[in-house]
């Protein structure tokens, strides 16, 4: 019966509007940015805008972005697993609660939330006030890479937690029971059962965290005090301040190439349909 339905296949045409949309608003815009990237500011063909990523200033921003993105991804992973295990421990495996806790913050405007972090972390901010009151001295994280790191981890943590949580929630309880009956302790159960089965979720999480944390420019703008630049800041300024659209496009394209390569690398293990739902 499935075969019949598959072979009749007038259903394919339902995706017609979407195919048109993808062509008009995904494929063509990408061609436009590539064209702009390959055009010199004065007109004429050039690859200079794309190679410009290797200029020391741009390269520095790119490396700093990579550092932030890698750090953010690792921290998000390290924070997510204990949470998922804790939820299991307390039998709070219900998806509803988790969605609720993780999605709700998105309803407070994201820029305002980052500004709130600025108030918390600034030198005479809330965190230092609490630390001083407790007699623990002071921290000076304001306008440092650490502040940016806290900001990106804060902003992208839900995108790591949700898919890992969903993947773990789908694990059949019998598998874990069986492992325990066969003498596995908690640690072994995690390493041999829970972790391997959570990998599809982990991959979704990495995809959802790595790229955005690398290219965000608002977080670094607010928490980095304008001195620390991610590649996103450089691109944004080419468009809004330096007004060099071609250079901005060129840097975007090289960023895109880098993203594609790293994603192809991540997705290699990710077979058809294996990646668990993000939401």
């Amino acid at each position: 019966m499935i075969n019949r339905l598959k072979s009749v296949n007038k259903r394919i045409w339902l995706s017609g509007p979407y195919a048109v949309w993808v062509f008009g608003f995904t494929v063509i815009p990408l061609c436009m940015i590539i064209r702009a990237a390959l055009t010199a500011r004065e007109g004429g063909f050039t690859t200079g805008n794309i190679v410009a990523i290797f200029d020391p200033i741009h390269l520095k921003a790119m490396l700093f972005s990579l550092e932030i993105a890698a750090g953010c991804t690792v921290l998000c992973i390290l924070l997510s697993y204990p949470l998922v295990l804790a939820m299991r421990q307390l039998n709070m495996g219900k998806k509803g609660f988790m969605m609720f806790v993780l999605i709700l913050p998105m309803w407070m405007n994201f820029i305002l939330r980052i500004l709130a972090w600025q108030m918390i972390l600034s030198n005479n901010g809330i965190l230092n006030f609490l630390l001083r009151s407790a007699g623990l001295g002071e921290l000076s994280v304001a306008n440092t890479g650490a502040a940016i790191m806290i900001g990106v981890v804060y902003d992208y943590l839900p995108y790591m937690m949700l898919p890992i949580f969903n993947a773990v929630a789908e694990i059949n309880e019998d598998l874990i029971e069986a492992a325990r009956d066969l003498g596995a302790n908690g640690f072994t159960v995690f390493c041999k059962v829970i972790f391997p089965l959570s990998i599809p979720g982990l991959l979704s999480g990495i995809v959802m965290v790595f790229v955005p944390s690398m290219t965000s420019f608002v977080i670094s703008d607010i928490l980095g005090g304008g001195k620390l630049q991610l590649i996103g800041n450089v691109i944004e300024q080419e468009f809004t301040k330096s007004m060099n659209q071609n250079l901005g496009s060129g840097l975007s394209v090289s960023l895109m190439i880098f993203v594609l390569i790293s994603m192809a690398f991540t997705m290699k293990n990710d077979r058809e349909g294996k990646r668990s739902a993000i939401w």
Binding site: M32, T215, I235, M263
Partner: peptide
Amino acid sequence: NIPILNADIVTGISLMLW
């Protein structure tokens, strides 16, 4: 997956250029 994988800034700029 392109709009999800692509950086927001790249999506925004490419749409604007178009």
